[in-house]
Design a binder for these strands. Sequence first.
DNA 1: AAATTGAGGTTCAACTAATGAACCCACGCC
DNA 2: GGCGTGGGTTCATTAGTTGAACCTCAATTT
Lengths: 256, 256
Amino acid sequence: MSTVGKAVTLLEAFDVHRPQLGLTELARLTGFDKATTRRLLLSLASHGMIEQNETTRLYRLGPALVRFARIREAHFPFLESARSFVVALAEETGETAHLSEFDTDYLTSTYVEESPQANRVSVSVGDRFPLHATASGLAYLAAARPDYVETYLTRSLERHTPFTLTEPDILRQHLGEIRQRGYSISDQGRAQGVFSVGAAILDGEGLPIGALAVASPAVRASGDTAERHGRAVMLAAGKISARLNGRATNTKDRTR
Amino acid sequence: MSTVGKAVTLLEAFDVHRPQLGLTELARLTGFDKATTRRLLLSLASHGMIEQNETTRLYRLGPALVRFARIREAHFPFLESARSFVVALAEETGETAHLSEFDTDYLTSTYVEESPQANRVSVSVGDRFPLHATASGLAYLAAARPDYVETYLTRSLERHTPFTLTEPDILRQHLGEIRQRGYSISDQGRAQGVFSVGAAILDGEGLPIGALAVASPAVRASGDTAERHGRAVMLAAGKISARLNGRATNTKDRTR
DNA sequence: AAATTGAGGTTCAACTAATGAACCCACGCC
DNA sequence: GGCGTGGGTTCATTAGTTGAACCTCAATTT
């Protein structure tokens, strides 16, 4: 692995539930030597990518990351342009709606609007969705480049529940149906008792960059739920894509 | 420079006004060889820190940065906890109020609430403030560790206007006065015609992590402006620090 | 109070990964 | 059709990275 890759791997050791880590702990989590870990941390810290609490000696993600994130968001306002549509979708369906963004073989939850009902699906910002086991992921794959999909399908796909689809051939067929239908369906693919439908968010070239989904308790999913939610999520995703690209983008326009 | 440092330097080539860059352009901006630049970009891209537009071949900051920023903000909610106080401060003073965060020898503007008046000071999120030439920076320095201040003062300090203070001795004296007073004053230190007062935001150990400031056109700064704005900014900064640390933190409590 | 454990941090010879000059290719333009 | 420009690649040389062993300090344990 390149040195840069190692440095980023170090950053990836942090998450919402482990926002601060010690040197030894970081070395253990990443598998790097303590000396290596420290040298990388210092390099990162000198650029504000990592910060150290001077009394506890613990490391945490630095302010430069926030600065970079703002630059990206200013130019590529994924969240800003989507928030209101997610809220509207949750209201319309009465269920939890969530938006996720593609990032290295996963979709990462970016914004969540939970259902007001007591029995609801709960999702947290930062949660990562495997592509083959969630409605969001399937919607993403259905719109992704064929070569990416093939590469993804040939690796070993984790089975999260007895309902998870892991057979490449079945998945390929499933993706075909999603393309026809316009939205994806995942019946308890990642978590038991959760029924979801999803649709991809597309960039200016028609390639997917994220997904929008509605998740409901499976016990509330009756005959027409998939279609009702599916239409709603498809429409909302289309609107988000359109706004993101400053124009309509439901066609895969590749003329340029 | 370490490879990691170079990789981050590449990220730093992007800013709000230049959110997308080509390979050659990036190599030119950073001074690295084209091959080096590309290899670094690939390493970064494989972790989602950089993204490439497949048709224009231009590179932009990646989604992983946004993910990391969220992890940091979830744990260290600088902006969230401060926003309402900045709005209130702008309202109270009738002038532009802005919050900035320390990041590698500069304060970076994080949130801005502009004055409603036609003749107002305009600040953009992402603007970088030199420590010696702005009210925010001086407030930061006045609360910073002595060894950091000394290191900072011994480098050559840029003169932005005829009013910029660049003499280490004068600055040291100035910082003493700021500590006594509780807020800083910068009369046209960075831009002609801008009068600002500022106060530092402190972490749980009493060390500064950012600053809050009120900036007004110098022509509106009369006799009591400094004191009125100063008191307001000091109070607001104290409240932000307190909320950030979950308790009162205007004393430098180091008992642990 | 001496011994033990475990954390942060450092050193330096061995070694592996980074470097960059020169290269190719594609496209747009005169 | 030749020239300029930008993206991308190659590989011998070179410079940065590695990690076992070490140090220090503070908190437990004996």
